[in-house]
Design a binder for these strands. Structure first.
Lengths: 218, 218
DNA sequence: GTCATATTCTTACAGTGTAAGAACACAAAT
DNA sequence: ATTTGTGTTCTTACACTGTAAGAATATGAC
């Protein structure tokens, strides 16, 4: 690692491309400017290369997205197995949410993405093992696992791309009409701000976890 | 309405375009072939016209999607207010799910769409009124309303575009390796089939509803 | 008929993902 | 130092997208 690239001269020196660098740049671009404006050409611009150069590392945009999904899943920590199983689920839920909030632009894509890479399946498998450790029957843990996932997906989607942020061409209803025609929404409006998201997430999570714990008897 | 169009002759007779007909055709196309292959040109083909003719009725694709979202929201029945409030929430949850399942191709778009049309806001307002009827404080109903929505969104997304259906370029892990490397997933596999979706949805919904009911005291 | 208006189509453009292959870089072998 | 090979990057091209601008057509009023 002595003088392999002569950094600092004016001569078109550039970090060479790599899977890692491309994935990083894609996250940076998407989480900063949104999925809607993402394209291979813009990503290439960000990387300082031509669009087709990316295809030497990823055979298609879909494969790049797969790699990004994989990376997101790998970021989620799985707590040690000597903790209480419910506590482990709670920790993983927070870990999942933290991942989503680190990638607000990308998360909506992850939420509807098929999870069939080894990394993703490995995580799901480990989550299911926690349900097994809790002593749930096959039927119970398959259900509770899904309910757990439903809640996490819905919550993270709302916090990242929620209906206040999603795309829409309709112009918003003006403030005064809004207050008159939708008084119940207006009343809770202040509580819909981001600073209440964590509390809401926690409250809902506890309910879901309580349901999971209770399902052990049935 | 006697002989306005002479139906049945070979002469290029065609139902004239309309907002309604375009929206219907868009639902048909998307729910049959998926969002990925949808385009204005293909929709025009389905309608028997040219792509630009659609723009006389909707100023952009985004506006068409807005109209479709609106229509979906209008399809959800709101139960009469003399029922028990929890029962009303349960009914609306099933109504919402039924809407999603009627439009499996379109739902993923709806799930991340901003809801700021009058129709959509009207529905949200009526849902919030149910929480008010239940006697929840402003803070409690703002939270429980969101948790309710999180669950519905996550569940319907999974049932329509779930991770078993979403896009992915990665080739699936072969069966024998799967059983060896991901035994916990393999064990619950049979329970992940669509015939178990309803039971799972109901189980999770009851947990969420119980949480909502319990939040009245706090 | 003529005319006004509403509807539909033609053409065109900038942007997309990516196939095919040319051009380049650089280490090892001569 | 030159050649060779191999991995990396770029050039060009194509079929597709959403939609702007305006021409052509249909429809009904007078």
């Amino acid at each position: 690692m002595s003088e392999r690239k002569r950094i600092g001269t004016k001569k078109k020196v550039r970090e060479p491309l790599s899977h890692e660098r491309i994935v990083q740049a894609a996250f940076a671009l998407i989480d900063r400017r949104g999925l809607a404006v993402f394209s291979t050409r813009r990503l290439a611009e960000e990387l300082g290369c031509e669009a087709m150069s990316i295809y030497h590392y990823f055979p298609s945009k879909a494969h790049l997205f797969d790699a990004m999904v994989d990376r997101c899943m790998a970021e989620i920590p799985v707590p040690p197995s000597d903790d209480d199983w419910i506590e482990r689920l709670r920790r993983m839920a927070f870990g999942y949410r933290a991942m989503a909030l680190r990638h607000p632009g990308f998360y909506p894509l992850l939420a509807v993405h098929r999870l069939n890479t080894r990394t993703a399946l490995g995580l799901l498998d480990r989550v299911l093992k926690v349900f097994e450790a809790g002593g749930l029957s096959v039927a119970a843990r398959s259900r509770q696992f899904r309910v757990f996932g439903y809640y996490l997906t819905g919550a993270c989607l709302d916090e990242t791309a929620g209906y206040a942020r999603g795309p829409s061409a309709a112009e918003p209803v003006p403030g005064d009409e809004f207050a008159r025609d939708f008084p119940s929404i207006a009343a809770v409006g202040p509580y819909f701000k981001p600073e209440h998201h964590l509390k809401t997430f926690e409250a809902g999570l506890e309910v879901v976890l309580e349901g999971i714990r209770a399902s052990r008897k049935s």
